[in-house]
Design a protein around this nucleic acid. Structure first.
Length: 933
RNA sequence: GCCCGGGUGGCGGAAUUGGUAGACGCAGCAGACUCAAAAUCUGCCGUUCGCAAGGAUGUGCUGGUUCGAUUCCAGUCCCGGGCACCA
């Protein structure tokens, strides 16, 4: 009787399907546990061996938790809105809904082969109207909410209207300068449009004109994180700034809470760091300087022409006496007002130059120093010093106040600028400044610094801040690098906004009008003025009452920002997720996925959860308790070397003797590094007549580790691995490859070893000749020892997500049992339960063969039995804890007797031994390592 | 440039967190079974000296702490990832 994995796996997958084995209910006596995978975008390429890595890990953990007695929610779905499907539609004319459906079916078939324990009755798709109805609903909730800075939480917009009616704009902190102060009376006298315009400055989902990343080639606006180095992440097309009306999420209001929340959740340090970086909190001060300029009054000789002031943001108020010049962003409002007549021509020329430069150029030429003097001066409020005001590209309009105070001795950019334009440098840090480069230290004693003289810079910070505030020239200020998140795309394949425009006022649809379904279009070309394809459908856009529909659609991250909630209550038609369901399942206990969503999806879903929490729809404000980032499985590409201009291919070792072109060759035609010459000739017609220059009779390919992708011919399809070795082998092998978090190249070679392990396992139960070999004998200590050691190891490793070492432990266990010919049912059935999460099919099969009537799903995981070991089996070596070891201070050259004497007379050891004598003491080079009691 | 990770055999990777470095697997070598091959099994497998027992050496490099360091500390060199005019 042989290990026939094909029949076994088919049998059990069918059984699980027929019995709905993995369907879970929203109530149980058991504690709830939620294990979630980042749902995939169903691309046309299907799965390669890299994709299931995280799914296998999460499946192992789900099955483990289930056996541990938890009610486990482990769902799967599809993030089925997105650009690639639309791009494909543009190229082929196929409707995205059609290709998406097709791709999903491919995914499902592939996933099913691996034997996942998903509850498919909860499957969801973000492009399904039954799903995006609620995405739209949450959007309207965001639209209908504002952030109360006093209470630090979102509240309904109706509350804000109440406040405005009673106390006008004073009632809440001002959001931005363009909202002018008004009284309660004013508010009531405002027109509907005026009121709505003001409210738009407070809504969490709001529409505004703003500079957006416009990508001509894609015909759409991109989010900051979709732009990399000035070009689009997808396709690498140039991106420029363009003013357009867009929707945004006011994520900046949540910056602090998003930062705070990181403290309580278990994400990897590097991922938290990425989010902190993205949020970019900095503490400092805004300082206001009077401005002196003769702008427009040169002939009159007037110095201070008006009460213009310049406000800068700095993180180093302690360097206030080291300011040698000011720099404004070229777009700063003040530029036009303060430029002197004498400098106007130069400034205009510079502004023209700046405008001519694309974002791309600006980023590529960071090192290039440019700028222009305005002719105006700012006055240092503490010593009256006149400080020249410049404008320069390196100061960004969008951050802080768009203006800085430059301290060349402490900041390298300021230093470079001063050098380039010959601006004299004031040294306030003595020897710490060499004159050759800036020194950003906080450890220097201040000089030439008025009331700060002689103080350590980091101490001077607080003194300066207090003085600035008491003198009324500025205030403490916290700034964030993060901007509000762009939330609209000029695209077709996304959620339509449930919004109509009525004389410039955005009006939400009512709940019963949801979902606003995506209308059918005949083509996917952009609409006029860069609008999305929806703008072309005039009878959809134009409503009978004269209003028009919003024509942009929501971005890819809309649907994925809350999908984990929908799984809890997937068929609810009255709510996005009932409070009862979300209270039962609570947060996602374990979330597994790649690191590429660090600042996108993972930040937005945290935001949405916080808003839903504030408004009372869920009971927690962080969606994911623990995040495990799986590494990427890279491809190991193979190359052949064609001698230029011939059809000769030279083996890798000899290629230096010829002038060659390296060409990717399909990894499936290569065994290790040796090319299958016949298969290569049959592969493509133009290689049919290939000739080979061999080394030692073989053609050896070159290799390189690259991202796994179709174009590099290095993808390995899980389907044929499963066909050849079985799903259990595949699952265990993917885990055996190394820690899940680590990226590693795929190598099919080692899979034999894991497959061999499963066949060995089979032999614990059946012999080829003798058939059944397992028996009902009572296990002896030696056998129990192997079992218990394994239980402990597997459980420890699984809890730590160290699946690779767990698989190793299985191998050791099975080898040991075979060696001592242990075929006892009492041992074997426990091994099977241990193994189930890792290799569910073979475990179930053998479990049934053992005559255990029920499903292995109902069996319970053997509990960790350390106590048992110590109390009943005294032969286990027990380490003395680290403290005992280090404190005893065993001398290097002492004899064993001396060592024993010292150790045994030690108080802690005595206490630990409780008066008993050790059976055996283990020495290594005269040093006591372990004691056996 | 800044911020995170990480450097261990021919390879993927272990090491109870300061206690016998190299578990487990792959590859390799030798042997058993076989007419032969496959499959399976057994043994060996960091380097070096030695017939052997055994010795020396060894976790990127240089130091330090310690009875003892892959593990902790300081410096340094590589590799991977993220951010990048954010004042």
């Amino acid at each position: 009787m042989d290990y026939n994995f094909r029949d076994i796996e088919q049998k059990w997958q069918k059984h699980w399907r027929d019995t709905n084995a993995y369907q879970v209910k929203n109530d149980a006596d058991k504690p709830a546990y939620y294990v979630l995978d980042m749902f995939p975008y169903p691309s046309g390429a299907g799965l390669h061996v890299g994709h299931p890595l995280g799914y296998i890990a999460s499946d192992i953990f789900s099955r483990y938790k289930r056996l541990k007695g938890f009610n486990v929610l482990h769902p799967m779905g599809y993030d089925s809105f997105g650009l690639p499907a639309e791009q494909y539609a543009i190229e082929t004319g196929q409707h995205p809904a059609v290709t998406t459906e097709k791709n999903i079916n491919t995914f499902r078939t592939q996933l099913d082969k691996i034997g996942f324990s998903y509850d498919w009755s909860r499957e969801l798709r973000t492009s399904d109207p039954r799903y995006y109805k609620w995405t739209q609903w949450i959007f309207l909730l965001l639209f209908d909410s504002w952030y109360d800075r006093e209470e630090k939480k979102a509240r309904p917009i109706a509350d804000l209207i109440n406040l405005f009616e009673t106390a006008g704009s004073r009632s809440v902190q001002r959001r931005d300068a363009s909202v002018e102060a008004f009284t309660g009376g004013d508010w009531k006298s405002f027109s509907e449009k005026q009121q709505q315009d003001i409210l738009m400055h407070y809504r969490l989902a709001f529409s505004s004109y703003g500079e957006v990343n416009w990508c001509e080639a894609l015909g759409t606006v991109l989010a900051n994180d979709e732009v990399v180095n000035g070009v689009s992440e997808r396709g690498g097309y140039p991106v420029i700034k363009k003013k357009m009306r867009q929707w945004y999420l006011r994520i900046t209001e949540y910056a602090d809470r998003l930062l705070q929340g990181l403290e309580d959740i278990s994400f990897s340090e590097s991922l938290k760091e990425q989010q902190r970086n993205w949020i970019g909190k900095s503490q400092g001060a805004e300082i206001t300087f009077p401005v002196k300029s003769d702008a427009g009054n040169a002939t009159a000789g007037v110095d201070l022409v008006n009460d213009l002031t310049l406000t800068v943001y700095t993180t180093r108020p302690d360097t206030i006496f080291g300011v040698d010049f000011m720099v404004l962003a070229p777009e700063h409002d003040l530029v036009a007002k303060i430029t002197t007549d004498g400098q106007r021509a130069a400034i205009d020329e510079y502004l023209t130059y700046v405008k001519s430069r694309s974002d791309r150029e600006r980023m590529a030429e960071v090192k290039q120093i440019t700028g222009c003097f305005t002719g105006a001066y700012a006055i240092n409020p503490f010593d009256g010093k006149e400080i020249p005001i410049w404008i320069a590209e390196y100061v960004l309009a969008g951050y802080g106040t768009g203006a800085i105070m430059a301290v060349p001795c402490g900041d390298q950019r300021d230093f470079g600028f001063a050098r380039h334009f010959n601006i004299p440098i004031t040294n306030i840090i003595g020897d710490h400044f060499t004159g050759e480069e800036a020194n950003p230290t906080k450890e220097a004693l201040l000089e030439q610094s008025g009331f700060l003289n002689g103080m350590m810079m980091k101490d001077a910070m607080e003194v300066a801040l207090q003085k600035i505030e008491s003198a009324g020239v500025g205030k403490r200020q916290v700034n964030y690098r993060m901007r509000d998140a762009g939330f609209s795309r000029q695209r077709y394949w996304g959620e339509p906004f449930p919004i109509t425009w009525n004389n410039g006022v955005a009006t939400p649809l009512s709940e019963k009008e949801l979902p606003l379904e995506l209308p059918h279009v005949d083509h996917y070309k952009p609409g006029p003025e860069g609008e999305g394809p929806l703008a072309n459908i005039t009878d959809w856009v134009n409503l009978p009452d004269g209003a028009t529909r919003e024509t942009s659609t929501m971005p890819g991250y809309a649907g994925s920002s809350w999908y984990f909630l929908r799984y809890m209550d997937p068929h609810n038609e009255a709510e996005f997720c009932s409070r009862k369901a979300s209270d039962y399942w609570k947060q996602v206990d374990l979330y597994i996925g790649g690191t590429e969503h660090a600042v996108g999806h993972l930040l937005y879903s945290r935001l949405w959860t916080k808003v839903l929490f504030d408004l009372g729809y869920v009971s927690y404000d962080e969606p994911f308790k623990k995040l495990l980032n799986q590494g990427m499985i890279q491809g190991s590409s193979r190359f052949v070397y064609r001698v230029k201009g011939t059809s000769q291919f030279v083996s890798s070792g000899l290629k230096s003797q010829y002038d060659t072109n390296p060409l990717h060759v399909d990894v499936n035609l290569v065994d290790g590094y040796e090319l299958d010459l016949k298969a290569f000739k049959n592969w493509r017609p133009d290689y049919a007549n290939a000739e080979f220059i061999l080394e030692n009779g073989k053609y050896i390919c070159g290799s390189e580790v690259e991202k796994m992708s179709k174009s590099k011919l290095n993808t390995v399809n899980p389907d044929w691995i499963v066909d050849k070795f079985g799903a259990d082998t595949f699952r265990m092998y993917e885990m055996f490859l190394g820690p899940v978090e680590m990226s590693k190249p795929w190598d099919t070679k080692g899979i034999e070893g894991v497959h061999r392990f499963l066949r060995k396992l089979w032999r614990l139960f059946y012999d080829e000749q003798k058939g059944r070999v397992w028996n009902d004998d009572i296990p002896v200590d030696a056998e129990l020892k192997i079992l218990h050691r394994t239980i402990r190891k597997i459980e420890d490793d699984t809890e730590k997500f160290s699946f690779n070492t767990a698989v190793s432990a299985f191998m050791v266990c099975v080898n040991d049992l075979l060696e001592i010919k242990c075929h006892k049912r009492l041992v074997l059935e426990k091994v099977l339960i241990l193994l189930t999460p890792y290799a569910p099919h073979i475990s179930e099969e053998l479990w049934q063969q053992l005559g255990n009537g029920g499903s292995i799903l109902d069996a319970s995981y053997p509990p960790f039995i350390e106590k048992y070991l110590i109390e009943t089996n005294k032969d286990y070596p027990v380490s003395i804890n680290g403290k005992v070891r280090t404190n005893i201070g065993i001398a290097l050259n002492a004899s064993q007797e001396e060592v024993e004497k010292i150790v045994l007379s030690n108080d802690i050891v005595q206490k630990w031994l409780e008066g008993k004598q050790p059976k055996k003491i283990i020495y290594v080079k005269n040093k006591m390592i372990n004691m056996v009691v």
